[in-house]
Each structure stands twice: as structure tokens, then as C-alpha cells.
Nucleic acid binder design. Structure first.
Lengths: 249, 249
DNA sequence: TAGTGGTCTAGACCACCGT
DNA sequence: CGGTGGTCTAGACCACTAG
């Protein structure tokens, strides 16, 4: 059972505002799985009593984590750890659309999985040391059984060790829910860069086109809830069928 | 001088939470220019007294408008209407990068300005009635004096009437600050769609390339602070030099 | 009906800014 | 120094959910 000393004993910086310390503590609970999405987290009044702070202070911390998409409130029911699977998790990062701008619903097939030493580019984009090992995936994504996207995905082999023990056929269509379920890693944010080029031999084969066919190249660096660079992805899509939609705020 | 009756008399729905009504009222003040970026808005305590609510309620409303990028707080100084010009206004919507992913700093040159009847596409993307008139701009954006982007921009001629009286040479490099200064219209949000095609005759000429040269086509629909579709923009960029970066959350 | 989050109040004290 | 926003407290009552 948590006590009112837990805040004092935790590693959070005591010079920070109380609600910040609470946030750090709550994020740790989510990361470590102490709070799961199975049941509501303790009520605001309980949390206030646990940590010896006013309910308004707890509320402020929870507000921030709701804004950061880590928690969801449900009036009358409680506050829950956000389920990554839930709702439109797909369309948060998958921005491909048809010619009319309508979102596409893709499926996925893993082509290969291999552990190897990280190359220079991977070390750079995953903040790894020389000699570190990565897990590399190749994947196609299909819409109505037509290949739309060829992806090369790299992650830190050490952090993603559980992934080596799961059959690629059981990965499912979405990797981020898998990362969370199998490795306890939550992707919160990503940066994508789009440019145009010509298809590599591998991409061309899997996209059923000739080498040198025009493609859109999408590079993605994804970050987890500790802001650590966690996944590096380079995708190719046939330029002739490429359409990508994004909201700027 | 505002009185405590102003909330009751305003058009905001009185069934809404108080802080929501305050937000609506504050947004109206910003839209109408009653609050400008020249001086701080009234202090939280003053606002609470003006409208007969608790300071915490005012604070909640201001918090939301800060999150929506309409206001900025400055501890010890006051709260200010956000200056669109300020800081990185450019890079909020301009997502073009060099080959290394570094943001590019473009200038702009207006090529033409013309008022005409809206075509079907413009009516659709600007929510205009048949027969409505639009102001059409053509523009090139340059990086180090090299043309990077050819843009066709359409806005409601009626709402943007002041723009017809300003010399295009005086428009400056950024349109959204101009929209605000000249027309009191603030762009808050935009949706962009990227695809791949071949250059139109006009675009090719201004990008110094042949007709049919591969280009990236970027369509943008921009919305103002009332969520009204306000600007419709179709841009073309040489595919060979196109690079576009965006953060997904 | 009991318990949850949602709204709102009415203060206190602190950190920061300009004068 | 006085005034601003930043943090924090300690309640009240309402709206919603589940049993």
C-alpha cells in the first residue's frame, strides 16, 4: 500500500512543483505496469490521501496526463490508463489516404525478422552505442490485398528482446500495441520526413514494380513516454498511388 | 467598462459551464480586437471581479486558451493575446526541409492577384455558395533565391476585402500575419494532403522546369479561430528537391 | 444509492517582473 | 516594492455511472 512518504522517498526532484512530482510518479506507475488498463486508477480523493496533498493538486497532475494521452477520464466510472489499442490508434500515425483524402485501412505482413549489429544510421536514430544490436523487421502493408507500403523497421534488440520470442505471424496489423503488450513500451510521438526517390530492389519486388520506379520515402523516428528514440522506420510507397494527410496546429 | 452582467447578456449558452462561457467571451474579445497584443489583458483577479466569478474559474478559461495558442502567460507581467508574428510562426505551417531534415527559411514573391467567381473546388473547400467570389493569389517561395514552391491560394473575396487594397509587393513573406493585421482573421489550424504528380504549365515555368516534370502536390485547407474553412491552397514543388517534415502525436 | 469525475468557490503563499 | 501569474489548499455541489 502506498503511504504519504512515497512522494518524499521517490526519486523525483523535490524542488519541483508537487503536481509535477505526482506526474512523474504516475508516469512511472504506468511504465512499470503498476497501473494497468484493466481497472481504474485510485480515485482522486484516494490519491490525495495517499500522498498527503490536496485533491486539486492530484487533479492538476491527472489533467496533464490526460492531455498527454496517457490517461482517460470517464465521469462516474473512474480514470483509466489509456489503452493504445483503443479507437483510432491506427490513424494516429498512419496518415495514408486514398485519392479523395479518405483514410485507408491497411493490414500488415511481416516479411523478415533479424537481429544484427546496428549500422551507423540506426545508431544515430536510436541513440545507440557502437556495437549495439538491433532487431530489424521488413514488412508490407496492404490495402484490399494490394501492397501499398514496404517498411524497414529497426529497434533496440535489448529493449525489445520479448519480440524475438513471438512468431511474426502473430504480430498483428499494428506494432505499437504489440510493443506495449510484449515489451511494456509505449510510443507517444513520432517525427516523419517525406521525400521522393526511386524504389530499392527489395521494395520494388514487394510492391510489384520495377527497380527504379518512383516512390515516396517516409522516414519515421518514434519516441516513447520517456522521450527516448525507440523506433526507426524507413518506408517506401509507389509514388503514383501515394497520398498522405496531416493536420498542422 | 465591462460589468458582471456582461456574461448574462452575451450570446453564449448559459447552460454551458461558466469557464466555457468565459472562453467564448474571451475568444470574441480577441476576434473583435477588443483585446490586442499591445497590452496585457486584464488580470485574473480583475476578470473574476468583472464577471462575478471566482478567480479559479477565470484561470481555467485562460488555461484552455493558452493551450489553444490564443493567449500567452508571462509570469510577473501579465497575460497577452498571442502575436502570430512572434517566434516560429513560419515553421508552424511551413514544413519543408533540406535533405538533412533541417527546416528551410523561405522568402516569397506574389506573382498575381485576381478577384473572380469561385469554381466548384473553391466553393467546396471554402464552404462558399454558388456565385460567391474569391481572391486568387499566385506566389513562389524561394530559398537562397531558388524557386522551391509554386502556390495557388484562394480566399473568400468578401472576408478578405482589405487585401485588395494592399500592394502585393507589401504582402511580406508570411500571409497569416497579414491576414490578421489587415483582415483580423487568425489561422489556427490546417490540414495538408501530399501527393505526387507532374508540373502544370504555370508551375513548371515558375519553378524553371519543363511541363510534366515530377512534382509534389500539397493541398492545404486552413481554418480560423471559429473553425471556419478560410483558405485553400494548392502548391507544387519539384519532386527531386522535395522534403517535408512533420510531427505526429 | 454510493462513488466517480466535473465544476466552482475563496482563499493562502510563492516566484517573478518592472519600477 | 506592488502587481502579475504559479502553486496549493479545502472545501461545496452537480452530473454521470454502476449496482
Amino acid at each position: 500500500m502506498a503511504t504519504s512518504d512515497e512522494l518524499q522517498e521517490s526519486t523525483t526532484d523535490r524542488r519541483l512543483p508537487l503536481y509535477q512530482q505526482l506526474k512523474d510518479l504516475f508516469v512511472a506507475k504506468i511504465r512499470d505496469g503498476a497501473w494497468s488498463d484493466a481497472a481504474p486508477i485510485p480515485s482522486e480523493i484516494e490519491l490525495a490521501a495517499m500522498y498527503g496533498v490536496a485533491p486539486g493538486t492530484v487533479r492538476r497532475a491527472i489533467d496533464d496526463l490526460v492531455a498527454a494521452r496517457l490517461l482517460v477520464r470517464q465521469q462516474g466510472r473512474g480514470t483509466f490508463v489509456r489503452d493504445v489499442d483503443l479507437g483510432n490508434a491506427l490513424f494516429r500515425f498512419f496518415r495514408f489516404t486514398d485519392a479523395k483524402g479518405q483514410a485507408l485501412l491497411p493490414s500488415a505482413r511481416i516479411l523478415s525478422r533479424r537481429e544484427t549489429e546496428a549500422d551507423r544510421e540506426e545508431r544515430e536514430h536510436l541513440a545507440l552505442a557502437r556495437g549495439a544490436r538491433v532487431l530489424r523487421l521488413e514488412r508490407v502493408r496492404l490495402v484490399r490485398d494490394e501492397p501499398l507500403l514496404f517498411e524497414k523497421i529497426s529497434v533496440d534488440a535489448h529493449r525489445f528482446k520479448p519480440l524475438a520470442r513471438i512468431e511474426p505471424g502473430d504480430f498483428g496489423d499494428l506494432l505499437y500495441p504489440l510493443y506495449q503488450a510484449a515489451c511494456g513500451i509505449r510510443i507517444l510521438r513520432a517525427v516523419e520526413t517525406i521525400r521522393f526517390g526511386t524504389a530499392s530492389a527489395g521494395a520494388a519486388r514487394h510492391l510489384r514494380a520495377g527497380t527504379g520506379t518512383p516512390v515516396a520515402i517516409i522516414e519515421r523516428q518514434a519516441f516513447d513516454l520517456d522521450e527516448q528514440a525507440t523506433e526507426w522506420r524507413v518506408s517506401q510507397a509507389l509514388a503514383s498511388r501515394f497520398s498522405y494527410s496531416v493536420e498542422l496546429r
